[in-house]
Simulated scan of single mutants.
Amino acid sequence: MKPFFLRMLILALFPFYSIAQKSPRVLIIGLDGFSTEGFKTAKHPNLDKMIADGVLSLTTRPVMPSITLPNWTSHMTGSGPEEHGVTSNGWTKEKHILTPLETDKDGYYPSIFKVLKEQKPATKIAYYYNWKELIYPINKSYLDEVSFQEKDQYKDNYNKAYDFLLQHKKDPALVFLYSVHTDHAGHGYGWMSPEYISSIEAADVEIGILLEKLKTAGLYKDLHFMLITDHGGIGKGHGGTTMNEMQVPWAITGPKIKKMGLITEFNSNKNTSLVLARIFGIGKIPDSWTGSLPKTIFK
């Protein structure tokens, strides 16, 4: 029987069967200190186009305290500081106050990277960052590629993220692409200062370049994209409980996501790993994870 007629027969008998099951693939773009205020004020046409066919929350809550390491750890572990134990930017595996609820064999709280490698071992995982402390709570043994850039530089990591996705275009893949320069602009010049807004707009330019390269290579259509951040800011700092600090953008788009536009339902940085687990078809999440899955965003 010819392939075309075989396909038609299968679809007729099994209408919900997909001949070409696509491997789940996610690119996470993380901008540190990117507030809802900043999102509303800055011009970011490339981010806008990226998330236009998906979901955008401008009322997502960081975990407390509203500082960097606890929140990025929460994104990647589906839990809050009270569970994963990362309560400050000074946390290290060797020196911390609060004992985590659960650890792997190497002493790390279970991350989405661990869950993926154990349940979906074919998944290729890359982690790109430019704030050295960021990776401290993450067990690097579950990562296939790691790249750190110094002095707030991030463009080389954007190129590496593209190369990684191209190299593994047939594999399930999760790429975490982070930059701290937006946060440092807030600390240096003030949240909502012209320099802070410019830092967001500069990131958007590089994001646009990356997205165009993905489109040209035929990699864009089947990717899920996430935009996440850790906290906002007020004055030249953060860590408190003002709405300037405790309200951030969170967005996702891709083949499994509904086109819903702006949503107002409750969302938390703790939910990110639950969403990733759903995209990758993870059957069991760690018992210690406390995030919740925003089910309405999925097709």
Results as ranks from 00 to 15, higher is better:
A277T: 04
I257L: 09
E94N: 06
V248R: 02
G30C: 06
P249V: 12
E206L: 04
S179P: 00
W250D: 09
E37H: 08
Y17N: 07
T241H: 09
V275T: 12
T242S: 14
Y108E: 12
G54R: 08
G281S: 10
G261D: 04
T264C: 01
K213R: 15
E212K: 15
T242D: 11
L13I: 10
P70H: 07
Y189L: 02
L143K: 08
G85N: 10
T264N: 09
K295P: 01
K170G: 12
L223C: 11
G254V: 01
E265S: 12
G233Y: 05
Q21V: 11
D104T: 11
G33C: 08
R278K: 15
L69M: 00
H238P: 00
Q21A: 11
K124M: 07
R7C: 07
K215M: 13
Y189R: 14
F266W: 03
Q247I: 03
G261W: 01
S199V: 03
T60Y: 01
S88W: 01
A122F: 00
A251G: 15
I112M: 13
T99K: 15
L134I: 06
K155H: 05
K270M: 15
S79H: 06
G30S: 13
M226K: 12
L219I: 03
T103R: 14
L69E: 02
Y17R: 06
S179Q: 07
N244T: 05
V146Q: 14
P24Q: 11
G78N: 02
T68F: 02
N139H: 07
S18D: 12
G90S: 13
D163Q: 12
S57A: 13
S292C: 05
V175H: 09
T182H: 05
K95D: 08
T92Y: 00
L210S: 10
T229S: 13
S23M: 11
F14H: 03
K95G: 05
K2N: 14
Y136P: 00
I297K: 15
D104Y: 03
T68P: 00
A122I: 01
F39A: 04
Y178F: 03
G30R: 09
L165T: 04
P172K: 14
L116N: 11
Y158C: 01
T103M: 10
I125E: 02
L210R: 15
M50A: 14
T216C: 02
L13Q: 09
L13E: 04
T59E: 10
